[in-house]
Amino acid sequence: MKRLASFALALAFPALVLGWWEWESRQGLGHAYAFAPLEQIARSFLEMLADGRLALHAGASLQRALTALLIGGTIGIVAGVATGLSRVLDRTASPLITVMRQVPILGWLPLVALWFGNGDGAKLLLVSLSAFYPTVLNTQKGMQAIEQRYAEVGRLYGFTRSQSLRMIAWPSALPLIFTGISQALAFAWIATIGVELLFSASAGLGTEMMAAQVAARTDIVLVCVACVGVMGFTLNQLFALLRTRLLRWQPATAK
């Protein structure tokens, strides 16, 4: 009974919003311009699903985000390990990263466009940069936070430098590295949509949204917004699963 009540309340709010939306859409042509009727939104969704447009754009965005995650994340982890282990590198690279990071990712866009054009390469560069920051920062923090307790065990058993690195530093940094990657995943997804909105070329959900906006197709924009949300959420959940699997040595509370 109680569960039913909370379920009803959970549905009440969206129902209210949808009802209001539908009502607005019937208030003459001027309103229907922004408030596409619900039925039309559903129809557009099915249409885009059927003719493969949704899959095409979603696939392009996904591929862009993941490729950039791979590039930016790899460079970020390598740089994080290097700056985490070497003080010289830390002192050289960290101020640069800190300064660069002050500029919002999309603020680089006009410059990148002028230097590298607005093709896929420029997009990939910016999205990779957005994935780079969180991975490098978290990896570095992880490598620097090696617990003295475990380092002593290494000393007891005569660990070489490479053994300490492989068996103590790297695994103890892993949870933070994973945190970095999961942040990078979220940032890369946001940045992907952002660059697609701003560089309207080739396929992608952002590009499609922008085109729909120009054509005043609220229904298509909404379908894309929902798609962006669902995909972002799914990516996040999948990564969390992967993390739990790979870090199964962690006690449940530590996550």
């Binding site: 999309l106 997804w189 946001i190 949509i193 952002g194 909105l197 959900l205 952002g206 949204m209 922008m210 729909a212 906006q213 609220t218 924009v221 909404l222 894309c224 917004v225 929902a226 962006v228 949300g229 669902v230 972002g232 959420f233 996040n236």
Partner: peptide, 10 residues
């Protein structure tokens, strides 16, 4: 779950 940027066209 939806990045705010994605709401811009809307």
């Amino acid at each position: 779950q939806v990045p705010v940027i994605a709401f811009i066209p809307l």
